[in-house]
Design a protein around this nucleic acid. Structure first.
Lengths: 254, 254
DNA sequence: AACCTTACGACAACACCGTTGACCTGTTAA
DNA sequence: TTAACAGGTCAACGGTGTTGTCGTAAGGTT
């Protein structure tokens, strides 16, 4: 075996499969996205992908060392698409807001792929471009390097994490989604005020708010905290908040 | 077949397995958690669980209709555990911070269960208790009902979403995790300053920050934005931020 | 135009997975 | 004492990712 995968640049012998398809990295990624789109994330398997392409499953291992590699390629394609449709204006806060919402929407447009790709670093072209761009927005806005990185990290992870979360919800069968909404209407909205005063007092809001995505709210909170930080950096005043008793899991490593 | 699972209350004929183990829902959940703990999330399969228990894999289907059911049972146990170990002090911000970190840590301890449970509303006892408690903290702090619900929603979803995200990362094979960290060290940290000025300028911070969880940062940003909101509610002053051009996906529905 | 090299597609096999239908047996209530 | 049946077991089905091996046709070279 030694090395099965040939770097894309060196590929030249384009031999068609038995069924007459000429494979390529692009074609495989495209087909994988289509497969996910049409039949759900569970439909994405090496064997099924091979079948869809009209090729033996093992052929794919000439293009991707393992399934992971394929996932990364898919993820990068998604990033690229989001970045291409984004038009920055120069207002850092509005631009990041717009980008965040676009990333989130992109994830929702490819729910199954989003879940799969949300937690990976691809190290590929589009991802690098995205990192450079967002860091640029923050540094140009006046955030010092360390702060820019921290906020970049939180911003990106928030978009990805909420994207994956909302994608997962959307990927459920319609009936199950309706059932979840019903839980808020029937179970929660009917709890008596004497045992559950806070839920009872806010029931109306819970029913209205909970079945929607919390991402826009979370995004705005993050951005407004960042804006406050920036203000503070420009004209230092009080002391940043310190919790009285730091929690045990403070420095959780991924 | 018709119905294989008997409700736990009705169970009474406790026949031991060939290897002398008396099965129960509790024992199965416990063993599953131990398995995850000891050998990673990938080690949890029906077959391996059966082997660990000293029972035929198919026996488990007398207790859980399918793997999902088992995961939810595990998740419920997690929520309960998190709530039980939390000691509120009366300082809303510190309390929420502590709770958020605990939820996140709980998710990380049991990655597979976390991913599954992050987007489901169970409507079960522990969940209801959690909703009531958190809403109580916010309302007692002085947030008006609508605002309390919005912030509750963002807070919970953020904890769940980041928990799921970081869980997914942690559920990867060790080698793959190391590979991800290496991408930041090798690929990103080596980009030349003339093509990628912002990455080059912050490389040191990226290498240090990116392989860690962004949750603590994101949580603190959220809480500090909430605190600012509270300040504003108490003594109204300026106008809240409005983006110049509202983005298309503003009101994304789950 | 013939020849070599070798990229790459195909095949078969391996070890795993979740799930189910049929069977058998020990426990328990009557 | 006995009959019912809960619940453990077995075997099988159809799926999965992955790899070692082999044949062949495409391409460059002559």
């Amino acid at each position: 075996m030694s090395e099965r995968v040939v770097p894309p640049a060196a590929r030249q012998r384009r031999r068609p499969t038995k069924q007459g398809v000429v494979l390529s990295e692009e074609l495989i990624v495209e087909t994988a996205l289509r497969l996910i789109e049409e039949h759900g994330a569970d439909a994405l398997s090496v064997r099924r992908l091979g079948r869809s392409l009209g090729a033996d499953p093992s052929s794919l291992y000439r293009y991707f060392r393992h399934t992971d590699d394929l996932m990364l390629a898919i993820a990068d394609e998604l990033i690229g698409h989001t970045l291409r449709t984004w038009r920055p204006t120069g207002d850092w806060r509005a631009d990041l807001r717009d980008l965040g919402l676009r990333m989130h929407a992109g994830a929702l447009a490819h729910p199954r792929a989003a879940v799969l790709s949300s937690y990976r670093v691809t190290g590929r072209a589009y991802e690098i471009q995205a990192v450079e761009t967002i860091l640029g927005v923050l540094r140009d806005a006046g955030f010092p390097d360390a702060e820019a990185v921290r906020i970049y990290h939180a911003f990106v992870d928030q978009a990805l994490a909420h994207g994956a979360l909302d994608s997962a919800t959307r990927a459920m069968p319609k009936a199950a989604q309706e059932a979840e909404a019903a839980v808020w209407r029937s179970t929660y909205a009917r709890l008596p005020a004497d045992t559950h005063p806070h839920i009872a007092a806010t029931a109306r809001h819970l029913v209205a708010d909970m079945p929607r995505s919390s991402y826009p709210t979370a995004l705005d909170l993050l951005l407004s905290a960042a804006a406050a930080r920036l203000e503070e950096i420009r004209s230092p005043a009080g002391v940043p908040y310190r919790p009285s008793k730091p929690s045990p899991e403070e420095a959780v490593r991924r």
